[in-house]
């Protein structure tokens, strides 16, 4: 019954870490981040489970390692308001609003109405110069603009998750992770009809 044996998916933190590092060398790798977006959604929609969070999420494993194995976490309880559904759904909405803003900016670059900006926006406000990771793109500048935008999203969530990892439990990010909230909502909706149990 013991589940101490490591499975292949227990090493997916390597993939997450590699992803973050690759973004420092060539921003176009940021496109790969879409996998972290679509895989959890597909699993929750088709299987009705949070198997992505539960098993495969490399980012969660990264926080668990940093906070657990490396002992960087204070291991305190997360404040009540941060686990309230108001905050979780609010953060999901905010994250999505920012995501669509990023898509809109990408579109403007695609359409030629705006020039490509080789910056990574941290925490939706800080514009970090990132030109060294841009070596041109084969297609439209919009392709690169999306990469910069998506990498901004990934880096921002990593920084936020890292801070809450330090302050609270290692995987505090999971409490308000927009993907986690969204897949849980999908699972709720999917099971609402089939499981009339009070949940």
């Amino acid at each position: 019954m013991k589940n101490t044996a490591k499975k292949w998916y227990d090493y997916l933190w390597v993939v997450s870490l590699t992803y973050l590092i690759l973004g420092f060398f060539n921003i176009l790798f940021a496109w790969l981040g879409l996998l972290c977006f679509f895989i959890p959604l597909i699993i929750s929609i088709t299987k009705g489970s949070k198997a992505y969070c539960n098993k495969y999420c490399g980012r969660g494993q990264l926080f668990a390692l940093a906070g657990g194995r490396f002992g960087l976490s204070r291991r305190k309880d997360i404040p009540k308001w941060m686990k309230s559904s108001g905050f979780r759904y609010g953060f999901l909405l905010f994250f999505f609003a920012m995501f669509f803003l990023m898509l809109w900016n990408t579109w403007l670059v695609f359409a030629g109405a705006k020039d490509l900006r080789t910056v990574v926006t941290l925490l939706w406000t800080l514009k970090l110069p990132w030109h060294w990771a841009y070596h041109g793109t084969l297609f439209s500048d919009g392709v690169a603009q999306f990469a910069f935008g998506f990498y901004s999203v990934m880096l921002t969530s990593t920084v936020l998750g890292f801070v809450t990892m330090l302050l609270f439990k290692p995987r505090s990010w999971c409490v308000y992770c927009p993907m986690g909230t969204m897949t849980q909502l999908i699972c709720r909706a999917r099971n609402a009809a089939s499981a009339p149990k009070s949940l």
């Binding site: 589940n3 949070k50 539960n54 969660g60 668990a64 995987r171 999971c174 409490v175 986690g180 849980q184």
Partner: peptide
């Protein structure tokens, strides 16, 4: 939040 941290550590 159904994150699965508990599931992972349960011996």
């Amino acid at each position: 939040v159904a994150c699965g941290c508990c599931m992972k550590v349960c011996p």
